[in-house]
Design a binder for these strands. Structure first.
Length: 271
DNA sequence: GTAGGATGCTAAC
DNA sequence: TTAGCCTCCTACG
């Protein structure tokens, strides 16, 4: 379930289980073996997330750069660690915990300089501290773009960490038609979208899932039977194609946009 | 058992 | 715009 909230949560969880003491580092699958050998028994000193990129800092200036892509998964457990399966790219283990990484797009040992280059090509992240997060740099790109707001929200150079679920949901929450051009988004709309993402994604980190339905629209509040959305959180439109909108009852629509599934309510979200 | 899809991204055309 | 990468789960026979 890798949108930005997942990665920030992983940064916290890796730190709480492994930081401050040496860990056994291994790559049972083999693809990261050489680097794992260099890091074995090194101390995890810090962890960091920017958008969907996770950085595990060892010693002074060694970093493991992890990107989960679409299928990557991380699984934490208590010691003793069971024998790893042959898909485990990276395992960290100490006296109390282990953690397995499977199927990442990226798992690489990088330097400080390489890490900085990754930050440089990412836009501001609603989950990073306000000190190094400036939503106006994102708006500058949005405001001069003819690209749809739906595509811009998924562009990690514009804003880092938003994925297909948050994209669909935040546009619904603000009544914005996904096909509107970036340059037709007002500063006030962008500020509201950004502030909303900060709140939603922080809650996502806390709960380790995406919930976007306002209290007044929950099934209980609306006098409807309880529901569970496919992906585990409560949402308005994501993966709800052809189902009735929770608010107006219109059929939720879906379409392909840049090879991803887009979902929206044609009635609640107007140009 | 098998096919297909998924909360992502990049390189190549 | 498309193929390709990596894994797991569901739906369908």
């Amino acid at each position: 379930m890798p949108e930005g909230h997942t990665i920030h949560r992983l940064a916290l969880d890796y730190a709480s289980r492994f930081s401050g003491r040496p860990a056994q580092v291994a790559s049972p699958q083999g693809k990261f073996s050489d680097s794992a050998a260099l890091l074995d028994r090194a101390e995890l000193t810090r962890t960091e997330a920017h958008g969907k990129h996770l950085f595990l800092g060892f010693r002074d200036a060694d970093w493991i750069h992890i990107h989960l892509g679409l299928f990557g998964k991380v699984n934490f457990g208590d010691a003793p660690a069971p024998p790893p399966t042959d898909t485990v790219r990276l395992r960290l283990a100490n006296d109390t915990s282990y953690v397995d990484l499977r199927g990442p797009t990226t798992c690489a040992l990088i330097t400080d300089t390489e890490k900085r280059a990754i930050h440089d090509r990412l836009g501001p992240d609603p989950l990073r501290p306000p000190a190094d997060t400036d939503p106006s740099t994102a708006y500058r790109r949005v405001a001069r773009s003819r690209t749809t707001i739906a595509a811009l929200l998924m562009d990690q150079k514009v804003i880092a960490g938003v994925g297909n679920v948050y994209r669909a949901e935040v546009l619904f929450r603000h009544g914005i038609d996904p096909y509107r051009a970036g340059r037709d988004i007002t500063p006030a709309e962008w500020d509201a979208v950004w502030a909303d993402l900060v709140g939603l994604m922080r809650e996502g980190v806390r709960n380790n899932r995406i919930d976007t339905v306002r209290p007044e629209h929950t099934p209980e509040a609306m006098g409807r039977p309880p529901r569970v959305d496919d992906h585990g959180g409560e949402v308005y439109v994501y993966r709800r194609a052809n189902l009735p909108c929770h608010i107006c009852g219109s059929e939720i629509r879906t379409a392909d946009l840049a090879a991803r599934n887009l979902f929206w309510c044609p009635n609640c979200q107007r140009a």
